[in-house]
């Protein structure tokens, strides 16, 4: 099992650090999965974390100038590590202006991700700062828990309003209530609602647009007007829907569904807030799929990063 990556470009380093920071806002610990092409940050929905699950996908080539890895075996060429993103984020923050940063899987007193940064120096001697971030190696037998979540058989899919506006609204609503109802329909309308003994508040967003996850013979695609990597992302993100019954139900549901009818989910407002707080950059696409009274599936697409976040419904 070997892993060694090197980032030279400052922009890549900043971007990588932002992604890790975003993840650190969402969860205390998560699993980092390394494959020859990708890095994944995965949180599987367990009761201990309120049933929230997360799937974040990065193309290593967009971040790393060098990337070498050797998985547990040639058959399973992957590495699964349990990490505390907060620690990794802190390590990366202190090396923001480094000339180059190496990330290595090392064996010190315990398995560590070693972040070694070469800092600019005025003399000919280079300065190197090393952070050892302890990790735990996830045994092969547990890997099945960290598979890509399947696309839920949603009732409504809708683009999210500007996340900043949404965050402001959710922040205030959180002061007033612990739970929030998120509802949306196929006419591009989304409402955020709270109701308590003292007050009821509803924020109405409209003209948001509904992504049409139109069914084609191939995998389900999101028709993005401009040519960009997102198309590929979404395609790759949703292989489960492409062949299963879900797909046909999907297409069917979306077409036969009353465009005004709301699909709603009542969620723990803190989970939604966490998701909104973490967003450091405006994604090129932000959308959400709602399975009536069951789950909210939030999807953010950046150029080279995709983040999926699932918030389960509460009674």
């Amino acid at each position: 099992m070997k892993f060694r990556g090197k980032i030279i470009d400052v922009a890549c380093l900043n971007h990588f650090s932002r992604v890790i920071t975003t993840i650190s806002k969402l969860t205390k610990t998560c699993v980092m999965r390394l494959t020859p092409d990708n890095l994944f940050f995965v949180l599987s929905g367990k009761v201990t974390n309120g049933g929230v699950s997360m799937w974040c996908e990065l193309h290593q080539a967009n971040f790393f100038d060098e990337f070498q890895m050797e998985g547990v075996s040639s058959e399973f060429n992957e590495i699964c590590l349990e990490v505390t993103p907060e620690n990794l984020s802190r390590a990366l923050k202190t090396v923001q202006n480094a000339k180059s940063v190496k990330v290595k899987l090392t064996k010190k007193h315990c398995p560590c991700l070693t972040v070694a940064a070469e800092l600019p120096s005025l003399s000919s001697n280079s300065r190197v700062v090393t952070h050892d971030v302890p990790v735990e190696v996830v045994p092969r037998s547990l890997w099945h828990e960290f598979k890509e979540p399947s696309m839920p058989d949603f009732d409504v899919s809708i683009y999210l309003p500007p996340l900043k506006t949404m965050k402001n609204v959710v922040d205030r609503m959180k002061n007033l209530s612990n739970f929030l109802v998120m509802e949306a329909n196929l006419s591009g309308e989304m409402n955020l609602k709270i109701e308590t003994d003292l007050v009821s508040v509803t924020t109405h967003f409209k003209d948001l647009g509904n992504p049409s996850w139109g069914k084609t013979s191939g995998p389900i695609r999101l028709p993005v007007p401009q040519i960009n990597p997102n198309v590929v992302e979404v395609t790759r993100m949703t292989p489960h829907v492409s062949t299963g019954d879900a797909a046909s139900q999907d297409g069917g549901a979306s077409q036969s569904r009353d465009p005004e009818a709301m699909a709603e989910v009542r969620v723990d407002i803190r989970k939604l807030q966490q998701f909104l707080v973490g967003q450091q950059v405006n994604p090129s696409k932000a959308m959400c799929n709602i399975v009536h009274q069951s789950v909210v599936h939030l999807i953010l697409l950046h150029d080279d990063v995709s983040l999926q976040y699932f918030i389960p419904a509460v009674a």
Partner: peptide, 19 residues
């Protein structure tokens, strides 16, 4: 009756009913 507020910013409308 509740005190009803209609708030609007950038085309987004919020309706609050404060008891």
């Amino acid at each position: 009756y509740p005190l009803t507020l209609f708030l609007e910013e950038g085309g987004v409308v919020t309706v609050c009913k404060i008891n």
